[in-house]
């Protein structure tokens, strides 16, 4: 269930980063570096957005053997729609229009 409240500044940053290439799966640490959000901000945001159906997550095999599997994230159609809506109101950092 999506929230009706105006997304926070941090959420806008995350929406902006994930909507640049909406089909691409991103790892948590890469998102942190890209958005400048700390893990203490990013993970609660990702959890909430996943609960709301705005972000989807899936497990990815590790690139190097011996390392644990990693969670990867991308926007759902609902998340992308929200990203577009807020971008119309105020341009998101890094947002560009991509047809789906």
């Amino acid at each position: 269930m999506a929230t009706n409240r105006r997304p926070s500044k941090q959420m806008l940053r995350l929406l902006g980063a994930l909507s640049v290439a909406p089909h691409e799966w991103r790892h948590g640490y890469d998102i942190m570096k890209e958005t400048g959000l700390l893990s203490g901000t990013l993970y609660p945001l990702l959890m909430r957005m996943t609960d709301q159906g705005l972000v989807e997550a899936e497990w990815r095999e590790p690139a190097q053997p011996g390392r644990p599997a990693r969670h990867a994230y991308r926007l759902t159609a609902q998340g992308l729609a929200l990203a577009r809506t807020v971008a119309d109101e105020r341009p998101l950092p890094g947002f560009k229009e991509i047809s789906v």
């Binding site: 948590g28 640490y29 890469d30 893990s39 644990p68 969670h71």
Partner: peptide, 19 residues
């Protein structure tokens, strides 16, 4: 309830160590 998220955080630790 958030076991998956705990594993997700653990999965990123190596990237943080590398960084």
């Amino acid at each position: 309830r958030r076991r998956d998220w705990a594993s997700a955080m653990r999965g990123e630790l190596d990237a943080a160590i590398d960084d």
